[in-house]
Nucleic acid binder design. Structure first.
Lengths: 215, 215
DNA sequence: CGTGGTGTTGATTACTTTCAAGATGTGTGG
DNA sequence: CCACACATCTTGAAAGTAATCAACACCACG
């Protein structure tokens, strides 16, 4: 059993000046915060009350078991939003994977954001439920295939896919160990389905085959 | 690999007259429908547009892989609500596990239910993400323990817990085979943690031990 | 150009699945 | 109300997949 120990960097992010209101108009302000790689955005148990939109970089949302086992429930890439909770408390941890810029939308106490939040929550719910199918019923190679296809689609469907996260992050997202993730990458490479350009980027050579494996 | 083949009962439910408006007031009507055991409430790909509240009985929400592998993402017991989707299409199947009464809230096209739906969606999201931790990082005995604790809490925290669903349903919810579920039940019984009163009800003898195993 | 962290590969172990058989339970018809 | 029959559940043995343990390679950084 491998255990995850968070490197407690948690530098306080230095904020830049607020930017354009964008999609959300009625909140108090939308400053951009910069988080260095590995730094904490919020922790389980902390008081919630803001939305976060990734400007650049990547974020992992995760939960820990008492003995340190970690499950990443979601990665959020540029443009994606996270941070909403069912009650006033964060139920998960959020960390910057790499140097990351995050736009913070602090929710005004009285303001009603239901209209904006509901679609995001429902999208997240659907994604989480689909991920349940992967973790509950797919084997290692199917999990990695589904992951790469998903990541590729979210990056615009190009052949080349960037992996902003480590093998450990991938493992903790897919419910696998880093060794298994590594072995599956090698197997996919040997089959000619993908090419490993470098540690953090792969090229999907046989999109159809990869797609078929992940479903 | 075991595969799930749905028994295509799908009797059209015979509706009773609408009941009290309850929590939702602005919809067109709230008839109660009766679904016999195993019948379909809605299917993946169908047009969505209603909320469902379980009056009695139990419902399973699931998804299938192409080869028949099934993942149940949630069970819904009396009082619980399900059926909302991110877009106009159902992404999952919903079936009555036993004879089940469901109150249907057809969402009027123009009506805005954001306020009522958002808390439900967020609750569901949190539950799904917590279930990801179970499927991704816990072993068989931990999964079953977490399941029994959860079910016990949802049934009022009594020592005796009713299992409205079969071993296959439990397996497909926990990402295990029916044999493994059965073996874990036996192990928990042998350890004196639970008692198997009959196939569909167990007694939690050592609540603290069971709780500790599932987290 | 070292050095620590990250990733890969190999050997072994452990857990869950698969395959198989038998037991138990439930529902139906006599 | 009992007996049979089918479905569900349990238990056992063997096989398979991923985890663990261990060593080495690679890469990025100072």
């Amino acid at each position: 059993m491998h255990a995850y120990t968070a490197s407690r960097i948690s530098l306080s992010p230095h904020s830049a000046q607020p930017s354009l209101p964008a999609a959300f108009g009625s909140e108090t302000q939308q400053p951009i915060s910069f988080f260095p790689a590995g730094s904490e955005i919020y922790a389980q148990g902390e008081r919630a009350g803001a939305l976060y939109q990734v400007e650049f970089g990547a974020v992992r949302i995760y939960r820990l078991l008492a003995d340190g086992r970690r499950q990443i429930s979601a990665f959020h890439l540029a443009g994606e939003t996270f941070g909403f909770e069912a009650d006033a408390t964060h139920h998960f941890f959020a960390e910057a994977i790499n140097a990351t810029g995050v736009r913070t939308f602090r929710l005004a106490a009285g303001a009603d954001m239901s209209h904006q939040l509901l679609p995001l929550a429902l999208k997240g719910l659907t994604r989480a439920q689909e991920h349940l199918l992967v973790l509950g019923r797919q084997n290692a190679i199917e999990r990695v295939a589904a992951f790469l296809v998903d990541l590729g689609e979210r990056q615009g469907g190009l052949r080349q896919v960037e992996l902003p996260m480590s093998r450990m992050d991938i493992g903790d997202y897919l419910g696998l160990t880093i060794e298994t993730v590594s072995r599956v990458f090698t197997r996919l490479k040997d089959k000619g389905v993908i090419r490993l350009l470098n540690l953090r980027s792969i090229e999907i050579v046989k999109q159809d085959v990869l797609q078929a494996m992940g479903e």
